[in-house]
Design a protein around this nucleic acid. Structure first.
Lengths: 112, 112
DNA sequence: TTTTATGCATAATTTTCTTATGTATAAGGA
DNA sequence: TCCTTATACATAAGAAAATTATGCATAAAA
């Protein structure tokens, strides 16, 4: 992540969203996609990413499959059924969160 | 803050924004205003608020004046000159952050 | 051949909260 | 009158969630 890190607390919903949109991804791919989507604004650090993926797997939110790509390992993650449900909830929360931020930071243009 | 706390890392810019918009505020007032603006979505806890205000004061971002309101104390905070500069930067970061979140969570409608 | 990119992982530390607790005044309801 | 809620500050202990640093390994590029 970035040094100033407003992103603190948003990483989990971000990953869930990525998996929801792309179906099946491996960790490194997530970091690259986020970097691309946000035009370099957000860099997910590995120290944050991998422990979180492991936690989500433990919780049954995602499931993992290891594949070999040439000589290199890739660990693909995808949402479980419970994970999809959880993602819906997380997206609702994100929506409310972003709306609240708008209210505070952009009180004039924010539409409630 | 809320339990789910996506807000982690956003409290400081939120307070700066409040002070920028309202000029001079005391802590309790900030908690009430945020609650009102966000329709109850965001509740700033005192354990997060007061230590942060003290830190900002130490850093010369805000300055404090204690006043008595009847028999009750209020500690009013306002941005210093350095604080206003810092707030501008923080708002730029917030804008970029919120845009990035849009890109991720709402890729179709997000305008880049 | 050294750096950069790909790809995973974990440990130590720091940041930033939550939760709990404490003090004190004032207002409102039962 | 008494208890709860609201107002208003403060701090300490603990948890959560990052950062930073490190490690391993393969492959491509400079």
């Amino acid at each position: 992540m970035k040094k100033s890190s407003l992103y603190k607390g948003c990483l989990e919903p971000i990953l869930l969203r990525l998996l929801k949109d792309n179906g099946r991804m491996y960790g490194y791919q997530m970091t690259q996609m986020v970097k691309e989507i946000t035009k370099g604004e957000l860099s997910i650090t590995e120290g944050a990413l991998y422990p979180l993926l492991h936690k989500l797997e433990e919780q049954g939110i995602v499931e993992a499959e290891t594949e070999m790509n040439g000589n290199r390992m890739r660990k693909y993650y995808s949402l479980t059924k419970a994970g999809k449900k959880q993602t819906s909830l997380a997206m609702e929360e994100m929506k409310a969160f972003m709306q609240s931020l708008e209210f505070i930071v952009n009180p004039k243009t924010a539409i409630g």
